[in-house]
Design a protein around this nucleic acid. Structure first.
Lengths: 213, 213
DNA sequence: GGATAACGGATAGTATTGCTATCTACTCTG
DNA sequence: CAGAGTAGATAGCAATACTATCCGTTATCC
């Protein structure tokens, strides 16, 4: 398969494919001569993956590179725990380290974790993300949003049980890493969409039971 | 308060404040003369809100404008249902209408909704978001990620119950809209972070019970 | 075997986003 | 009344994600 067909099959324009090649997101095809290369199904798949991460997961090109690097981790790195791979595709901090309220958010996460008896390390990047979200909510004075923080955490624990149960079934290590990364990146928008749909259902039910509340 | 103090108090630079003023994200201060305006606490709050939506919720400036417009909906629009407000801050579609697989994703959402007996309309933008996420997962051949779709939906239904229970307690209509919008936009990153933290807990627990699985 | 279409690789250009800087005419402050 | 600050307008800029063009080379089709 040459570049024109790769473009046709994947739906990505030739200049964009060249751009991804330059950026190292897409591995080069096998050169059969100075200016001819062969591409195969792996390239098609990789292009679909890049577009999925950009369009659906909402990643930047730099974020895609991080995700692909995590997926492609060589065997010498792959002995590391799944957690390490997932921490490498974490959402970068949004607030400065000295943000007033961040320390408070951090300790609220600590309380939550302790209350639920969760077994985890403070250096998980998601800890910071959670602390930042909490700090932001408090700083805007919409504290009521956090009344049910524990319930949120329990619901996400249910999700996590499903995630890990799925991963536990996977034998192949390469596939495991990929499923974990994609489950994280593509699962988030799915969960967000399901939350919104569920809200409409709950709202409709409540409306039926108390029509003019 | 003049612009320099507004900048100092909010932590947003003067040129950026002017940019937000130009863009209509921040309402103009009250002009006391041709080139002097007074700003107040509402402007401080609005600036914090804009930064929160950009930094924490990850919205673009255009997205912030949509969110603020939804929050600021005048009384004539505010009779509309909460759902209409939330649909206006929906995530825009990422796949083209004619994407192969989108129709399949759409019908999978329909099956899920029917299976769970959810009461909702097909025109909810989140329906499309869910269909796109499902279509993308299928097109990448990582179908296993969807094995527990029903469980995901149930967990998010729990979240939705919490969301609506919180909103039901709010009397003031203006506050209701704001809490709904911020609960949606700021709640998502919080849920994503909690999911990741919960995954680590579940992973640690599983590791303890079956150390070398 | 000769026209021509496509190719890989390099370089340059472009549209958009989200600010940032400068300018001008004015006004408040010490 | 000096000079710092201001509103509003316009212009500039850095980053991102492509998109276009060019070059010499290579396949392809009659």
């Amino acid at each position: 398969m040459r570049i024109a067909e790769l473009s046709r099959v994947s739906g990505v324009t030739v200049p964009t494919i060249k751009y991804y090649l330059r950026d190292g997101l897409l591995p080069a095809g096998e050169l059969t001569s100075r200016n001819q290369a062969q591409y195969d199904e792996r390239h098609v798949r990789r292009l679909k993956l890049i577009r999925a991460l950009v369009d659906v997961a909402g990643l930047s090109i730099a974020g895609v590179r991080d995700a692909l690097t995590a997926i492609d981790a060589t065997e010498e790195h792959r002995h590391k725990l799944l957690g390490k791979v997932l921490n490498r595709i974490a959402i970068p901090p949004a607030l400065p380290d000295d943000d007033p309220g961040l320390a408070q958010g951090d300790s609220e996460v600590a309380q939550l974790v302790q209350r639920l008896g969760w077994d985890l390390e403070r250096d998980n990047p998601a800890w910071r993300n959670a602390a930042e979200a909490i700090a932001t909510i408090r700083s805007l004075g919409v504290d009521r949003l956090l009344d049910r923080l524990t319930g949120y955490a329990q619901a996400m624990h249910d999700v996590a049980e499903l995630d890990l149960a799925m991963l536990a079934e996977v034998q192949d290590r390469e596939q495991l890493i990929e499923l974990a990364v994609l489950g994280s990146l593509l699962g988030n928008p799915l969960l967000v969409a399901l939350r919104r749909l569920a809200e409409e259902d709950v709202s409709a039910r409540r409306m039926r039971s108390t029509p003019r509340a």
